[in-house]
Design a protein around this nucleic acid. Structure first.
Lengths: 337, 337
DNA sequence: TTGAAAGCGTTACCAT
DNA sequence: ATGGTAACGCTTTCAA
């Protein structure tokens, strides 16, 4: 391995000067010396050792990303955006899959801390209390993503406004003439802003909300639940799936039950994963601005890390957009019900 | 930050002894002393600094994973498996999206090297020559995944046998009675084992292969291409999509052209991404054993890193399994053509 | 069985 | 403008 000492020797100077040249400071270097150093670096193919830099300084230029499951399309997409933005700003990403498990999540946080990451992106499955404890323990900046947690006043969150989005979705169903509208949510133990928005919209319309909870956020369990919902005598005429993956499962389950979306039931999703643009029927959904979410989060976190920003708490809520495709049908369908 | 010196002070011993206790060696420690150290560690909440360990020793316990695109479902799934296996063995994963770009790929390799990763997983878009150069430059172990490259005798590859898989897929179409069978491949500049297998199977059947190349591996470009294929007067009766994402695009495009899969065209994919189990129709495909691929790769790489294995070149080819679902239809459909 | 100290590659302060 | 050197937290050899 080529070290700074090798460069210094070759350039006939000291390691300090090499450092000044490499880092363009903090001391000036004579033009001629600088050139000798530059030449030596090029000839030797010298590259600074990031580990040594991290140990010496306090900055590693590594950011941690903890997601529930990288194979979930929405998180994968978000991860892509974040990795990209981080890379652009000179940061490397370490990845952890928490599997919705607070224990695992905490373990990753500690592991990453041990590795001196400069900051943390957290798509957390933890409760507010756990998060509170966490944020008081963790000395580095972190930003919460996507999942809105009720009480974490000492954290910063970037997400779409789930309550507003769910209301828009529900109202779209209402506008289409539906009255018996149910919501397919994730596990009951995970508090959901989207369920809340749905309930509010229903109440405002004088309707009784009906909530279904899947065992998990994956395809298999939402598909199972969808079959149950579809098999119900008193089946709803419209369904708000609080995440697209569930919406896709419903479409598939409907076909398997000899029904058709939207003819037999209107379905609206949330997230706008790519898959929904290619499903049959195409999934109407509340679109999360993934690109924006990811870049904002990255910029905020790095801003915090580099001290250009000091706002470590609060929320940045983006408004999801209704994207009308094919899974909700026309007004007549709703009326008929 | 609590350091080893703090622990030593608290336990009334030296930093060396703390090290012996923490690492369970290389020297024995008196039971009583050990206990004092353990107590001090617990009281102080001391955790070893991984960065310092990495700098001192040569091991960082970090592995790099370079994928073309983490938002591609197949890679996301593979990444999940790899992260999981690596984590189980005490390794952390850093992630890079190469976007099929050899330049970017190389940049990530260097960045990760600067960060002293112990090993590299590479789903490479580079040519054999580039890879050869790379492997001679790179001093750490690495394993190639999924993409089989013709000439990289100094690398180790784990993948499914694309030639065999493609042949199986093509023969399945042949068995169904199809004769006009085309293949939808990725970009023409990316050499494809799967295309090769398809061509061989066609030739063996005395048939003329027909290849289509999409601009990219993503949904948008495969969808565009699918429309072209479907719009062709002389359209094939069956299509081998060399990756599931393309197969899904074809299904969607068919519907948009007023056709139906499998009635108007049989489609078989490759990969077995989850999405194919939920599409309408469900996608018949060549299943890659993602779990096995990922764990094998991780075990091999870590085995190499830890010196338990010395086999740094060769191939481990798994056989993909034909998974018959709904997108190819019955024998009659092929015959009719 | 334990302690002292060198050294991993960097940075930045104190000298010169 | 530049060189010498201490320090970041850890591991391990050498001595005791």
């Amino acid at each position: 391995m080529v070290t700074r000492a090798d460069v210094a020797r070759r350039a006939g100077t000291s390691t300090a000067v090499v450092s000044y040249v490499v880092n363009d400071g903090p001391r000036p270097v004579a033009a001629e010396t600088r050139q000798r150093v530059l030449d030596a670096i090029a000839e030797l193919g010298y590259r600074p050792n990031r580990v040594a830099q991290a140990l010496r300084g306090q900055r590693s230029r590594v950011l941690g990303l903890i997601v529930p499951d990288i194979s979930n399309p929405f998180y994968a997409e978000l991860a892509r955006v974040i990795e990209n933005s981080a890379d652009l700003l000179g940061y490397t990403l370490v990845l952890g899959n928490s599997e919705q498990d607070a224990q695992r999540e905490l373990r990753y946080v500690r592991t990453f801390l041990d590795r001196q990451v400069d900051g943390l992106f957290l798509i957390s499955g933890s409760s507010s209390e756990e998060l509170m404890t966490l944020s008081s323990e963790v000395a580095i900046p972190f930003v919460l993503l996507d999942r809105r947690i009720n009480y974490a006043p000492n954290a910063y969150l970037i997400a779409t406004d789930g309550v507003a989005g769910a209301k828009t979705a529900t109202r779209h169903l209402l506008d289409l003439g539906h009255r018996r509208i149910a919501a397919l949510c994730g596990p009951a133990k995970m508090p959901s802003e989207r369920a809340k928005g749905y309930i509010e919209a229903m109440r405002e319309a004088g309707l009784e909300p009906r909530l279904y909870h899947s065992a998990d956020f994956d395809r298999a369990s939402t598909y199972e639940l969808a079959k149950v919902i579809l098999g119900d005598e008193d089946r709803p005429t419209a369904l708000f799936a609080t995440f697209d993956l569930a919406g896709i499962s419903v479409i598939r389950a409907a076909t398997d039950c000899g029904m058709q979306i939207p003819r037999d039931m209107a379905v609206i999703g949330y997230d706008n994963i790519q898959e929904g643009l290619y499903s049959t029927p195409r999934l109407t959904t509340m679109s999360q601005p993934t690109e924006e979410l990811g870049t904002l989060a990255t910029r905020h976190l790095i801003g915090l890390v580099e001290g250009q920003i000091t706002r470590t708490f609060g929320m940045r809520l983006l408004t999801p957009q209704l994207v009308i495709r094919e899974s909700c049908g026309m007004k007549e369908l709703g009326k008929r019900a």
